[in-house]
Computed example of a mutant assay.
Amino acid sequence: MALLRACLLGLATASMLLLAACVNKEPQERVAFIQLLQSRIDSGALVPLAVLSEPEKEAVGDYADAYEVIADFQQAMVKAAVSMRDVLAVETIRSVGDIVERRPRFEAARKALAENAAKLEDARAKADKARAAMTLPPDLAPVYDGVYDEAVTAPAAELMDAASKMDAVARDALGVAEFVAAHEDDILLVDGQTLVTMPTLQQELNLRLQGLNAQSDGLERARATLSQAAGAARGEP
């Protein structure tokens, strides 16, 4: 009988262990994840999105993967923003002579902008694909989507718009440089001054320069957007 009682006790212990191993932690993890996302929203810490601490990872369980979708996009976004921000020095224009002198650099700027905009678009598409593949509970989905919109969709659109504005400036500056090169006998650059021998060419050059100057406000907004996105990752003001 003592042996039988020992066997029964052993079976009961094993059953308890098995039951403990099968406890579903998803509800608690979901609540923890919702609370974590809400805390990020309330603190305004969505760009950049703070890295999960080890206790947070443990608390949210498998939902850490959903969090990483956003965090991974932001890492790619920051890299693109830093690269595009470095193009800003090239975009500074002071004179027609400056434009002509910097023609190769404007060409390089357009290439760099296109490459980094493509990387940003790829990162956004990857994040969107991952989000579309998720099946989130009804109470979590709206909270997650709110964070996703603010931390992925909105900044991606803002950076793409900034890249477009900068590219337009570089494109139009190249147009001026090409116009001057095409009329090198009639448009002379002397001691920092631009001398045009024909009134019709002067008028055309002025129109091109006016179009370029009209983009100054958009360029400044692009500067601010890229500087904020690039500087935020390193805690810059």
Rank of each mutant, 00 (worst) to 15 (best):
A117D: 08
A118T: 06
A118L: 11
A118E: 14
L120Q: 04
L120S: 01
E121Y: 00
D122Y: 07
D122S: 12
R124F: 03
A125L: 09
K126P: 02
K126C: 04
A127L: 04
D128L: 08
K129E: 11
K129F: 08
K129Y: 09
A130M: 06
A130F: 06
R131A: 11
R131W: 07
A132N: 08
A132D: 14
A133T: 07
M134G: 10
T135Y: 07
L136Y: 12
L136P: 14
P137L: 08
P137K: 09
D139T: 15
D139C: 09
D139F: 06
D139P: 09
L140T: 14
A141M: 11
A141T: 09
P142E: 15
P142H: 10
P142A: 13
V143S: 08
G146F: 04
G146V: 09
V147M: 02
Y148D: 03
Y148V: 06
D149V: 07
D149N: 08
D149M: 09
E150G: 00
E150A: 13
E150K: 12
A151N: 07
V152I: 07
T153C: 04
A156H: 15
A156R: 05
E158K: 15
L159R: 04
L159N: 03
M160I: 11
A162P: 00
S164V: 10
S164F: 07
S164Q: 15
K165W: 02
M166W: 02
D167C: 04
A170F: 00
R171L: 01
A173R: 02
L174M: 05
L174I: 02
G175V: 03
G175T: 01
V176N: 07
A177F: 02
A177V: 06
E178P: 00
F179K: 04
V180R: 00
V180W: 00
A181M: 05
A182L: 01
H183W: 00
H183K: 03
E184T: 06
E184A: 14
D185V: 00
D185Q: 08
D185T: 05
I187K: 11
I187P: 04
L188T: 04
L189I: 11
L189V: 03
V190G: 08
V190N: 08
D191S: 13
D191A: 11
G192W: 09
G192F: 07
G192E: 05
G192T: 08
Q193H: 13
Q193M: 13
Q193G: 05
Q193R: 14
T194R: 10
T194M: 08
M198K: 15
P199V: 01
T200M: 10
T200V: 15
T200S: 14
T200I: 05
L201E: 01
L201I: 01
Q202M: 11
Q203A: 11
Q203S: 13
Q203C: 03
Q203L: 13
E204K: 13
L205C: 11
L205I: 08
N206H: 10
N206E: 10
R208D: 02
G211C: 08
L212P: 02
N213E: 12
A214S: 13
A214T: 05
